[in-house]
Nucleic acid binder design. Structure first.
Lengths: 245, 245
DNA sequence: CGACATATTGAATTGCATCAATATCTGTGG
DNA sequence: CCACAGATATTGATGCAATTCAATATGTCG
């Protein structure tokens, strides 16, 4: 059993996400479900490599996933090869839960890099709930977090201009991934420019241009897929800059 | 006790929303919670008029709401008076649940017209769960439906052009409100052009122009806030028209 | 009726997409 | 180790969809 810091000792993670921290796998609430099978080790941990899919849009809801390490993108497709990346996901985040009602996934999930993933068979959920009565409450918590995140993205897509979107995106990433790293202001993008564009509702070229502009202005330093935030103040200012007013 | 059609007899409502239909108030799953207080009547039903707020963004999570009739908009605000309407809500829909984890509402809710709303004190949720063990599972269901809806809106905002957005919006509205009305292809908009624009991420004027264009082409008939869909085929074709390809 | 919100329509502007060309990176096999 | 091919990224030039600004019309309600 690997010792891990308790939730209270890890201020990097958002409060809402860590009431239960599972010492077995170092992950938050969701992993607690997996830790409770009596063996002390998470069952069904699997490795996915870049491009491998966890599930596809329309697939029957069979597993709930928990990301242990790496990163995953979720995307919604429509007709005419148009794809929207609805989210990028990192260690500690649950995936697939939103298929609960419809019994099929409303989005696809694909690994962005080599990632370790726990899977829970949904048929075991009721069963597990017998030993963990609060399990559904945990699922409510996780889903409610997701709704509020999604609504932030809706706000971004509906009201922000290109540069604001990208600044907002970088700040969010730094909070989620850089905070765990050695240099909290520096991190590596596991997704391509095209994927960032697909997530923020803009063209790949626009991502490039704005990143270049932020780099030239000294706001960030960009080398390949490595980003260092030099001036968080300025970046924040860009996000909520001039009202369209 | 007013007799109401069972879920199976009301094909107008989406499947995912009606496994439990509460005879007491005619509403779906959420209202079942309210029907189970032993009195046979929903407690704390209140009337809100156009412009009155159910809750504000940032307010402490104190009630879960269920819309019995009328309509409500939810919106997220940022700096610089920019506002995004994240959703329009009609009879049978739950509101405020997404505040569960953070313990404060991430959006504001405001009545678009005179509306009847049930309120459940969140402090009673645990309590209620004792008589209704499946209550948390119901909440998971409702939240998972909401996530999938939100992801559809994210797709729309990220990938569709103005005319497609509006066509998609009208089709969605007709499914949600017109189906309950006498003429299933005709309905009245409870929201202004500006509000539609704020929801779809476009300017009020653009909404006007495109509505006029759809009217002139015979696709819809528009009189004030009354919409009649004349050619659903064509409207659907607009939604998934030319790939940006 | 008069005041104010809501809606419509036109004209000018612009932010971003699109098209296009080149550069750079990554992995593979000789 | 280098050369090559394909993916990814950058940068420039051009076009257009949608916003913004502006003016008028129509609706709503005291």
């Amino acid at each position: 059993m690997t010792a891990r810091p308790l939730a209270e000792e890890n201020p990097a993670l958002p409060k809402a996400c860590i009431p239960i921290l599972c010492a077995e796998c170092g992950m938050d609430r969701f992993c607690a479900l997996l830790g409770l099978d009596g063996t002390g080790t998470a069952k069904r941990a699997e490795i996915y490599r870049r491009g491998q899919v966890l599930f596809r849009q329309g697939d029957t809801f069979d597993y709930i996933y928990a990301l242990r390490s790496g990163s995953v993108k979720t995307s919604v497709s429509g007709k005419g090869r148009r794809v929207q990346i609805t989210g990028f996901h990192f260690a500690g985040e649950p995936l697939g839960l939103s298929a609960y009602a419809k019994k099929q996934y409303g989005c696809a999930a694909e690994a962005l890099e080599t990632s370790s993933v726990c899977k829970v068979d949904v048929n075991r959920v009721e069963e597990i709930a017998r030993t963990v009565p609060s399990m559904y409450a945990e699922m409510v918590t996780m889903l409610s977090v997701r709704v509020q995140q999604d609504e932030q993205l809706i706000f971004l897509l509906g009201t922000r201009r290109a540069e604001e979107r990208l600044a907002d995106f970088l700040i969010g990433l730094s909070r989620r991934v850089a905070s765990r790293a050695y240099f909290p202001t520096q991190f590596r993008l596991s997704m391509s420019r095209r994927e960032i564009g697909s997530h923020l509702g803009m063209a790949e070229e626009t991502i490039c241009r704005i990143l270049a502009r932020l780099h030239d202005s000294g706001c960030i330093t960009l080398t390949r897929r490595t980003v260092r935030i030099n001036d968080m103040e300025r970046l924040s200012a860009i996000v909520s800059s001039a009202p369209v007013d």
